[in-house]
C-alpha cells in the first residue's frame, strides 16, 4: 500500500514536469546576466541560492551594477516579489498545522509555476500527507533544475567575450516577462505609467524616480480597473 505522501509526490511531479522544461532557458539567461555585471561564479550562485526568484534577481542586477543604495535595491526586490503575498495568502490554509521549519522551507520554495499548476488541487485536497507530498516534491525538483541550469549559464558566461553587451540579456529577459501580463487594459496602463514615470522622474534625488514610478503605475492600474468595472453592465 503506497503512502498518501508518495501518491501526492508522484502526482505533483507529473503535473509540474512539462512546465519545468520552460525553466531551462530562464535559468541559463539568469546565470549569464548575473556574471555580466561582474559577479564572480561564487557570488552569482550565492545570489541564486539566497534569492531564488528569477524576476527579483534580474530586476535588481542593473541596480547592483550601478551602485544604487541598498534601500532602493531592497524596495525594488520587494515590489518585484509582492505577487507572492497573494500566492501565500491563497496557500496558507494548505500548510495549516505544519511545523514552523516546514512552513519556512515551503515559503522559500514557493514559485510562480508551481502555484499556477498546483494551487487548485492543493486547496481542494483533504489529506495533509498527500498535500505535503504534492507540494514539496515538485518544489525541490524545481529548485534543483533552477540551480543546475543557472550554474550552466554562470560557467558558460566565462567563455563568452567580455565586450558582447551581455548585460542586455537582462533587459531582454525583463521585457519578455512583462509582455504576457499586458492582456488586460488596466495592466497596460500600469506598465505604461510605471515605465514613463521612471523615465520622466529619473532625476529625482536618491533615485526615488524608480519607486515613485512603480507606485504611480500600480495606482493607475488599480484606478483604471475600478473605472472600467464601474462602466461595465452588471
Amino acid at each position: 500500500m503506497e503512502s498518501a505522501f508518495r501518491r501526492g509526490a508522484r502526482e505533483g511531479l507529473r503535473d509540474f514536469l512539462p512546465l519545468s522544461v520552460g525553466l531551462v532557458p530562464w535559468a541559463m539567461v539568469t546565470g549569464i546576466a548575473m556574471r555580466s555585471i561582474g559577479l564572480s561564479p561564487l557570488e552569482a550562485m550565492g545570489m541564486n541560492v539566497l534569492v531564488y526568484a528569477g524576476t527579483a534577481q534580474l530586476g535588481t542586477l542593473p541596480l547592483i551594477a550601478s551602485g544604487a543604495p541598498l534601500w532602493l535595491i531592497f524596495a525594488t526586490a520587494m515590489v518585484l516579489n509582492l505577487r507572492f503575498v497573494i500566492f501565500s495568502a491563497a496557500l496558507a490554509p494548505v500548510f495549516h498545522g505544519h511545523p514552523l521549519m516546514r512552513r519556512l522551507a515551503s515559503s522559500y520554495l514557493l514559485v510562480d509555476g508551481l502555484f499556477a499548476v498546483g494551487a487548485d488541487k492543493l486547496i481542494k485536497a483533504d489529506d495533509p500527507h498527500w498535500r505535503w507530498g504534492y507540494y514539496i516534491a515538485p518544489s525541490v525538483y524545481c529548485w534543483l533544475v533552477w540551480q543546475c541550469c543557472t550554474l550552466v549559464g554562470v560557467l558558460g558566461a566565462s567563455v563568452m567575450p567580455r565586450d558582447w553587451s551581455l548585460e542586455f540579456m537582462t533587459t531582454i529577459a525583463l521585457t519578455v516577462m512583462v509582455i504576457p501580463m499586458l492582456r488586460e487594459r488596466p495592466m497596460w496602463l500600469a506598465a505604461l505609467v510605471g515605465g514613463l514615470g521612471a523615465v520622466l522622474l529619473r532625476d529625482l534625488p536618491l533615485r526615488m524616480g524608480l519607486i515613485v514610478g512603480i507606485a504611480l503605475g500600480i495606482g493607475a492600474g488599480f484606478l483604471a480597473e475600478r473605472a472600467l468595472s464601474g462602466r461595465a453592465p452588471r
Binding site: P62, M177, A220
Partner: peptide, 21 residues
Amino acid sequence: QRALRYAPAAALSALVVPDLL
C-alpha cells in the same frame, strides 16, 4: 489584493523602459 496584481507589470516596465529609451 487587487492593487498588488499591478505591482509586477509596473515594476518590470519601470526597470525596462528607461533602459531602452
